[in-house]
């Protein structure tokens, strides 16, 4: 576990500076002799989409698992809304407001959209489930996210397309008032139109004030939706910068070698 050292907060924000929603400092994780993460520093602000890029084995998955409570970091510190926290289990992460949308989506095919969105947090009445209240809330959430391609919220998830399933998984995170939504390769299995739909949804989440962290191999997606790009290389955070100060070639350099000496080109020009 991490050792808490009050007073020894590195890079403590000034009094006039709003602390980021989530701040990581010096997070390390070893699996036996394998150093998956080494001293990772990262700030995740609210209302922004932070993309996490990196080659295979760079430690992206380990990092999001540390944040979402599946792995406990060996050392390092996490601050949530300015206060130090230890996230030991996924339910502790959920209680803080961290919701992870996994690549395999974790939806029950045989249940309908409402049942999936409320799974584990059903609203009850004396005689059983409060279907009316849940169905209204689910529909309002989907409408507020402009997810209107589903025919009915009483449709079984099995009958949805990949993009619609992704939308349901994201809407579930919104419904549960998550402040940070982590998405692992949300567009990996989707076609062009569905990818656009999901990226629009990611953008809307950030515009509503949620912090979004998105792990993606697809640099098209990253540049289309992210406000900031963080690059991991061999378990180290080698670069975090606004998307406007970066381009594809810089990110590729960072992902493959861990450094880049290039300067950003004119935006919009092909690289």
């Amino acid at each position: 576990m991490t050792s808490e050292q009050p007073g020894a907060v590195p890079d403590h924000p000034g009094p006039d500076e709003e602390p980021p929603l989530l701040r990581l400092r010096g997070v390390s994780k070893h699996f036996g002799p394998v150093r998956a993460l080494t001293g990772v520093d990262l700030d995740i602000p609210a209302g922004k989409v932070t993309a996490l890029a990196g080659d295979n084995g760079a430690g992206k998955s380990v990092l999001i698992k540390c944040i979402s409570g599946i792995h406990a970091p060996d050392s390092g510190q996490m601050w949530w809304e300015g206060a130090p926290v230890h996230v030991r289990t996924p339910s502790e992460a959920a209680a803080l407001g961290i919701q992870t949308v996994y690549q395999d989506l974790a939806l029950c095919d045989n249940l309908d959209i409402v049942q999936n969105m409320f799974l584990g947090r059903e609203r009850l009445r004396r005689t059983g489930l409060d279907e009316v209240s849940m169905e209204n809330a689910a529909r309002e959430t989907l409408t507020s996210l402009a997810v209107t391609t589903v025919r009915s919220v009483r449709q079984r998830v099995a009958s949805l397309s990949g993009g619609q399933r992704q939308s349901v998984a994201i809407a579930k995170a919104v419904l549960w008032n998550s402040k940070l939504v982590i998405m692992d390769e949300p567009t990996a299995a989707l076609g062009v139109a569905q990818t656009t739909m999901v990226l629009d949804l990611v953008r809307r989440l950030a515009d509503r004030g949620h912090a979004v962290m998105i792990v993606s191999h697809n640099l098209n997606d990253v540049f289309q939706v992210a406000d900031r790009i963080a690059v991991l290389h061999l378990g180290r955070m080698v670069d975090v910068r606004p998307t406007a100060d970066s381009d594809r070639q810089i990110v590729v350099d960072l992902m493959t070698t861990g450094e880049s000496t290039r300067v950003v080109r004119e935006p919009g020009r092909p690289v």
Binding site: L145, T149, S161, G162, L190, G191, A193, M197, R203, R204
Partner: peptide
Amino acid sequence: MSRIEGPASTPPTERPDEVDVP
């Protein structure tokens, strides 16, 4: 709130990746 027109970008008639979903 919604900066981008969500449904307009994916009209139900254009879903090319849904060959396996009726």
